[in-house]
Design a protein around this nucleic acid. Structure first.
Lengths: 195, 195
DNA sequence: CTGTCCATGTAAGGCGTTACATGATTGT
DNA sequence: ACAATCATGTAACGCCTTACATGGACAG
């Protein structure tokens, strides 16, 4: 379960409240690990019960207490253990592929409309990620990129590569449906082999 | 929820028992929509209650009755409606990216071992998909690919493209960690732009 | 004076997983 | 004799989502 470990990860950088954590998720990892508020509060309580985090309760007059969470030693150890352990093979679910797989039940026109709307979305995400990428380039203009920033850059680059690949696949699919060309694509094109 | 619609999809091709459905899932869509047995039985019961499928009960002496499910008219209509409707933006969870994002807490050596084991897995999946691809080429050798086979081919091609992209990203990441080169990669490389 | 931000949670439901349980038939 | 296949399900738990609920501070 990565949510627990993502929370441990953020807390390893600084102590935070549940509310702060939600903002951190939304600002950095939401593209690959969205988390909602009730989930974060519940998971913090679990981590607390397990002794991986502990909290300082800040009493405030007339308001709910504020709880600032920080890692315990066992929490840090667990985070490091998880980060260094290879992940068990994970299964992905792609509803778009389910739609394509059973597209025999719909017309070419209907399928094209589905594919085109997916393509528009993929291009929008790609544009958004590209904008963030350029922003980061300004922050670390030359060769002065520190190791700490590198990992965030890497996850961004994954997003760029993945959405670009999705876009290319969609575009190729659209063209072939339009041309009613049902032959398989050549392998080198698919896996992006260089000539 | 795509499981319901995947089941409707299979039943649109032929009536099946729960057991048959499980085999169909495992043989064709497991790469992008794994389903387990108890889930299938529960969902069939729900679909039945909703009137999207109905069943013929085949009584057998000394054994449990066999239930063969088939689509109803509303079931087919619902399948077609879902297949033609653009999907709501779906959020993905990538635990590997969580590991990379917080890799500041582990050493280069530990990170490299994680990345290399992911790369080995990605290459294994790519090899498996490539084998299936070649098998399909034999089945439809020339230009005689029918529309019905095309959609299955398309989903396979998606898998090839996605795992190839993952592998390229992992390899690039490994090389940069090894070289302690923390500069961002150039955009055209990332999105696979042609020169 | 209305809405957004800060900050906390609870409740209910959906989807998925793992493990358990049964029992005849077919293959080695 | 033993295992795999056919064929059905139940139980319990885990993770995530949506919606609901509270209430002060501050900005337009």
């Amino acid at each position: 379960m990565s949510l627990k470990h993502a929370i441990l990860g953020f807390l390893s950088l600084s102590p935070l409240t549940g509310y702060d954590l939600k903002k951190h998720f939304d600002q950095s990892v939401r593209h690959f690990w969205p988390a909602n508020q009730s989930q974060i509060y519940r998971t913090l309580a679990e981590l607390d019960a397990e002794g991986l985090v502990s909290k300082d309760v800040i009493a405030r007059e007339d308001r709910l207490d504020m709880k600032v969470y920080h890692l315990t030693e066992t929490g840090l150890a667990e985070l490091r253990r998880w980060l260094a352990a290879p992940l068990p093979m994970q299964e992905t679910r792609e509803p778009l592929l389910v739609q394509v797989f059973f597209a025999g039940q719909i017309t070419d026109a209907e399928l094209l409309s589905v594919l085109r709307s997916q393509l528009a979305e993929a291009e929008a995400v790609l544009a958004a990620l590209t904008a963030i990428y350029h922003q980061q380039l300004e922050g670390f203009p030359a060769l002065a990129a520190p190791r700490s920033a590198f990992f965030s850059t890497l996850t961004l680059e994954y997003g760029l590569a993945a959405y670009a690949a999705l876009g290319r696949w969609l575009l190729a699919a659209i063209r072939r449906v339009e041309a009613q060309d049902y032959a398989p694509a050549p392998l080198p094109d698919l896996i992006g082999a260089q000539a």
